[in-house]
Design a protein around this nucleic acid. Structure first.
Lengths: 334, 334
DNA sequence: TGAATGTGAGAAAAGGTTTTCACAAATGTA
DNA sequence: TACATTTGTGAAAACCTTTTCTCACATTCA
């Protein structure tokens, strides 16, 4: 391929100064119609495209927004990403995604890369760094938004959810259905997300006088496997009529273990999940769980990022969750 | 924050020429130890980091490798991405991911963005562009690798799989288990991936004298929903003892419909999937499906990308799939 | 001793854009 | 007509790095 034409060559072709060409491409109003047309025509003829690096170099900033995930395979991220991308694209930004795979070093490395690249904004999901480390990293030219976590002293730049409330709500739904002995299967509680859900479960017990029935299995990770293992172990060593799982994967694993034990769902054991993955509706029985509209959340995050970049307050609130009642729970009051 | 220090300032601080500083940071051997130490010390003191844009501008290339996906939520992409990233990071490249959401325009737009950014290499998954359009786009300075598709006239830069063979294998497994009437639920057959699997199914029938039993449901998309709809409709209008689905999601949907019809799996109907998503093992019954090692495939794709960039042939073959036999199929010969 | 070779370092150009400043032309005001 | 204002344009500096070209000096070899 031939070398790409530069702005200078376009200027020569159109017999105007480089400054004028630059103005044309930056929608500077101070250039008259005839000139503008001549420049555009010349640029088209040459196949000119502005060199992003030269522009970034001189401007000291870009129109890139970057997002750091933990892992790509986390289902709901994808709709969130789509929501974010939709919003920021409309505002003229380009959107890139990368992942840390839960490594603190990768997190720092990737964020620094975004900084080095003068990104216009960065959205991060961090599980490796402490609150103070995040605040430390944030002290920079690049606006940062922390997703799915409330960072102490950095709340204005965080988008987070009231997991406590929603886990509590769904456990209370079980309680209203007559369940007194409820097993709770939680993800690794050193992560805020899971710890909040656990406290939601405990609040629900407390407020209904069931604290003595507390029964919790803590998993190393929130996977199908661990849900299976947890339920299996608890079935052997304790009694309960319902299992409240902190996500749908755990619930699927648990359901598998319940059946293996010769019990049926929901007749013998009720099960709830959290997240409403697509399979939840098609599981047997279909799973009662907490749904959130990931796409809307994504759009919200996008708007929040833009508001941080433009330093304008965003008054809008985070979208709420809803409980989806399906067939995995049974009312056991007679 | 303060302005970032430039190479020039480091040069001044270390009392050497900018050229020397540049040489130090580019591991040019022609600089003696004493100077090198002085430069490094000065750079550290100032917190210098080389400006990626200035470097990209002058070098006309970058150490970025980009990947274009259709959608992030496609499960197995994530392990593939991880594999690719592992390999290319080790080779000194940075890795970015973006998505097209099946839009042809987005595909072209994103690829062009990678081009504009002088990426060192681009990996694409395309469903929107025709073979010739892909070949057309490829004519450029940026090496391109097409994943999961065989593009006519561009085979050397493609990584693709023999889906025909694997779909055929698993259907033949059903046949060996005595099944004569097998429903095939396929994704949209205008996509190569699904069309190949369909032809695999048909070959299996042909070679076993079962062509007259052909029974195919074509879905608009390969989702849980469509699997459910397809199975439901076919259950009402045709007879079969097994369902071979083109992916696990379709299989889960189909299983749901089978149960709703009052039939059990695998006693009345055997079901197979394709892909082996994590849930496959924990479904009830566990799903017989085709497994591929996504991480290995990712690493292979990474190596392939590097080989294209360095213009060295890669002799290694694509990793193969394996059939995982679980409990969703039954041998119905007596 | 003189030439050839090698080594380390600086000067300066190049890469493509944006932006400030100055200036000229056109328009408006008195 | 003289002056002030507005509008459109170009020249040139700036952004930060890499790389080519020189040059000075030291070493080796005949």
């Amino acid at each position: 391929m031939d070398k790409k034409p530069s702005l200078l060559e376009v200027a020569k072709e159109a017999r105007v100064s480089p400054a004028t060409v630059s103005r044309v491409f930056n929608d500077n109003p101070k250039v008259n119609e005839e000139m503008r047309a001549r420049v555009i025509e010349a640029a088209e003829r040459l196949g000119y495209k502005t060199n992003i690096y030269a522009k970034a170099l001189i401007e000291g900033r870009t129109n890139f927004i970057g997002m750091l995930l933990t892992r790509f395979e986390i289902r709901h991220y994808s709709s969130i990403i789509y929501g974010i991308e939709t919003v920021v694209n409309k505002a003229g930004y380009r959107f890139f995604v990368t992942s840390s795979r839960y490594s603190k070093e990768k997190e720092e490395e990737k964020i620094n890369l975004f900084y080095d690249l003068n990104f216009a904004g960065v959205i991060i999901i961090s599980v490796g760094m402490s609150d103070s480390e995040i605040v430390g990293m944030a002290d920079n030219n690049v606006p940062m938004l922390v997703f799915d976590r409330k960072v102490e002293g950095y709340e204005k730049n965080c988008v987070y959810f009231d997991y406590h409330k929603f886990q509590k709500d769904i456990v209370e739904l079980l309680i209203r259905n007559g369940h007194r002995k409820i097993l709770h299967i939680t993800g690794p509680t050193d992560l805020q997300v899971y710890d909040e859900k656990l406290s939601g479960y405990l609040s629900a017990l407390d407020e209904n006088g069931l604290r003595e029935n507390e029964n919790v299995f803590i998993c190393d990770n929130a996977s199908n496997e661990m849900g299976y293992e947890g339920a299996k172990e608890k079935l052997a060593n304790s009694e309960f009529t319902a299992i409240a799982c902190q996500n749908d994967q755990l619930a699927f694993g648990a359901m598998c273990a319940v059946r293996e034990a010769g019990l049926s769902i929901p007749e013998d054991i009720s099960v709830t999940g959290f997240g409403d993955v697509p399979e939840a509706k098609y599981a047997t029985p279909s799973l009662t769980t907490v749904n959130f509209d990931h796409y809307s959340i994504g759009k919200y995050v996008g708007r929040k990022m833009l508001s941080i970049i433009s330093k304008k307050e965003l008054t809008e609130k985070v979208p709420e969750f809803t409980i989806v009642e399906r067939n995995s729970i049974k009312d056991i009051r007679r």
